[in-house]
Design a protein around this nucleic acid. Structure first.
Lengths: 190, 190
DNA sequence: CCCCTATACTCAACAAATTGAATAGGTGCG
DNA sequence: CGCACCTATTCAATTTGTTGAGTATAGGGG
């Protein structure tokens, strides 16, 4: 049950509704924790039952009302306890890599090139959003100044990880596309 | 049910027993698909029932007998079909990043520095194993030669991704450690 | 000879994630 | 004025993943 902690960490950045969290998870957090909206709503429910978050309904005129969640003191305690426990090794699932692993047996390099192109596009989009977020966080300062002075380094360090991860993806996807294209055009070896 | 495909992809590199696959998943595959041995055994069972893999018992004198699994033609077909379907976006879960995200609220930078050190060690170990595997694959050739000529590019391209990912982790963990250490020692800003 | 480690699995119970559908008001486009 | 899309959420069913224990053989070290 670890999405709980990812949710608490997200709420530690400020209160939010389930819907807002779903977007936050898609924009800023997605490179280190993945979850669907359904999961978020369910776990927010449980967090509330356990007293780790509190909900209040915010009436809205031009759109449906929403329930805004705030982390409680007990929630912060739970986050601290979580911080002290040893971390599980990171878990990753990447279908594109699975397909590539089997590429030499399955043939059909075209479909793989297409898949790599899709990854390239996606990673460029994610990177662009991360860059925006970065500009907003830095707010004119240099990275070094920010890391030394600011009272908010956590989100910047995680953003750094996501940013570099997408940069890696872009470079890597380009290599994959080039390699597979080159081999398809001139397979005069063997 | 996607571990199925990761398993088939692993078996496309050659037959293996559940136990051997468990090790393969720990060494070469872990950066793009994570699974516990129990999961592997259960899903191999199902793959066998569905006729996507075949098992045969290999008698061993000096150790317990093992069941060695081979991908069937039907399994290869399933892999091909999987290759043609659009890929799900990669999913990732990283507790260290969650802890870092909340770092400014939880305080206790020491525990986080420790956690980052653990990540650094782990990534260095993984990288070392990847480098070994790389040498074995390249077998004297340059990367460029290999990518152009070899009849096995898939495993190399996935290895490349894992290698660069661990290199990124190492650089990043060092930045985290330095940043948190610097701030703990001289927090003379406000 | 005993204990530890490695090989090679199996079983059961539980927790978590995925999928698909459903509801319901508001906004914007042609 | 109809259709698609956005906000905002809920429900149910099924599939996956995790945890912990348990079985059995063999080799090596002290």
């Amino acid at each position: 049950m670890s999405l709980r902690h990812a949710l608490l960490a997200a709420l530690s950045q400020g209160e939010a509704s389930g819907y807002e969290l779903a977007k936050r998870f898609d924009v800023a957090v997605a490179d280190y924790w993945t979850a669907t909206p359904q999961q978020l709503y369910r776990d927010l429910e449980r967090l509330e039952q356990d007293g780790l978050v509190e909900a209040r309904v915010v009436e809205q005129t031009r759109r449906p009302n929403k329930r805004v969640f705030t982390m409680t003191e007990k929630g912060l305690e739970e986050l601290r306890a979580f911080g002290r426990r040893p971390s599980k090794p990171p878990a990753m699932r990447d279908e594109l890599l699975v397909k590539l692993q089997a590429a030499d047996r399955t043939g059909e390099p075209e479909t793989l090139i297409e898949a790599a192109r899709a990854r390239l596009t996606r990673s460029k989009e994610k990177l662009a959003r991360y860059e925006q977020l970065r500009e907003r966080l830095l707010d004119g300062r240099t990275e070094d100044d920010y890391l030394g002075d600011s009272d908010e380094v956590g989100p910047y360090l995680t953003l750094m990880a996501g940013r570099e991860y997408e940069q890696l993806n872009i470079r890597w996807a380009q290599t994959v596309i080039e390699t597979l294209t080159r081999r398809r055009q001139g397979p005069e070896a063997g």
